[in-house]
Computed example of a mutant assay.
Amino acid sequence: AVATLGRAAADGMLAGGVLPVVKHMPGHGRATMDSHFDLPQVDAPRAALDTHDFAPFKALNDLPMGMTAHLVYDAIDPRPATLSPVMMQLIREDIGFDNLIMTDDISMKALTGEVDAIAAGALAAGCDVVLYCNATLEDRTRVADAAGEMSEAAQTRAVRALTMRRSPDDVDIPALTAKLDRLLGGTVYG
């Protein structure tokens, strides 16, 4: 069901000319903490993760871009997925996602340490792109310097993602608004 809904959302975005981002890989559903403030740890056994948590990502592994989760999966690696070569290998090989992978925002409190070291660690783990959304220009410069130029593999994945973007389908807004109005019984904007 999750993969079906994810596919429908992704197809809608692609039809609208938008590249969807599958997140948070390889799963955030079991987290009981907010990674904006803490580092969540998931203690589920590997078999349960494979069967439930990782399955939707495997079903959506053809989508253009993915975003990592700042979570620790105790059964797999003690490092947060974003900084874990083991988890990144799992995403690439077991889940089969070989398109562009970006980190979640590395300014989130789930990750600790100097931002330039976090950026370098994420790239070394196997991420293609580092997101750093809330910072001073000085800190952003440190992250950009630590990240350097995209690897050849990351550039290939980025180009592949961009080639998946298409012109938006033609849309008849009045007809869709009327259909929505009918479906909602006249309470579209109520």
Rank of each mutant, 00 (worst) to 15 (best):
Met102Ala: 05
Leu131Met: 15
His28Ala: 05
Gly185Phe: 04
Ala135Lys: 12
Thr177Leu: 08
Gly6Ser: 04
Phe37His: 09
Ala120Gln: 11
Glu93Met: 10
Leu5Phe: 06
Asp74Asn: 14
Leu100Ile: 04
Asn99Leu: 06
Thr68His: 07
Tyr132Cys: 13
Ala55Asp: 07
Leu83Glu: 02
Thr136Ala: 14
Ala153Glu: 10
Arg7Met: 08
Val21Pro: 01
Ala31Val: 03
Asp74Thr: 13
Ala15His: 09
Ala69Arg: 05
Ala44Asn: 10
Ala175Gln: 07
Ala110Lys: 01
Leu83Thr: 00
Ala125Asn: 00
Val129Asp: 01
Val18Tyr: 11
Ser167Leu: 10
Thr103Val: 11
Pro45Ala: 10
Asp94Ser: 08
Glu152Thr: 12
Leu90Glu: 11
Asp62Cys: 03
Asp94Trp: 05
Leu183Asn: 10
Leu83Asn: 02
Asn61Met: 07
Met102Trp: 08
Lys58Thr: 13
Ala44Leu: 11
Ala122Ile: 15
Arg157Glu: 01
Gly27Asn: 05
Asp53Gly: 05
Pro20Cys: 05
Thr136Val: 06
Asp169Lys: 12
Leu5Asn: 11
Pro20Ala: 00
Ile101Gly: 04
His36Ala: 08
Ser167Val: 09
Met88Gly: 05
Leu90Asp: 09
Pro174Asp: 13
Arg165Gly: 04
Ala75Glu: 07
Ala146Val: 15
Arg140Met: 14
Ala31Lys: 02
Gly148His: 00
Ala147Gln: 11
Phe37Gly: 05
Ala44Cys: 09
Gly126His: 01
Ala117Glu: 14
Thr187Leu: 15
Val115Arg: 12
Asp105Leu: 04
Ala1Lys: 09
Ala146Gln: 14
Ala69Met: 12
Gln89Tyr: 12
Met13Val: 05
Leu83Gly: 01
Arg165Pro: 03
Leu183Ala: 12
Val72Gln: 15
Leu19His: 00
Phe54Trp: 02
Ala47Tyr: 05
Gly29Arg: 06
Gly16Lys: 04
Glu152Met: 13
Met25Ser: 06
Val143Trp: 03
Met108Cys: 08
Ala10Glu: 08
Cys127Met: 00
Val130His: 03
Asp11Leu: 05
Lys109Asn: 12
Pro45Leu: 06
Asp74Trp: 12
Leu111Gln: 13
Ala59Val: 08
Leu131Arg: 09
Met150Ile: 04
Val129Phe: 09
Val18His: 10
Thr82Ile: 14
Ala69Asp: 10
Gly190Gln: 08
Ser167His: 10
Thr163Lys: 09
Gly121Ala: 00
Val171Tyr: 10
Thr82Asn: 14
Glu138Phe: 13
Ala122Pro: 15
Arg142Leu: 00
Leu183Ser: 05
Leu83Arg: 02
Asp74Val: 13
Thr136Cys: 14
Arg140Glu: 13
Asp98His: 12
Asp53Thr: 02
Ile91Pro: 11
Arg182Ile: 02
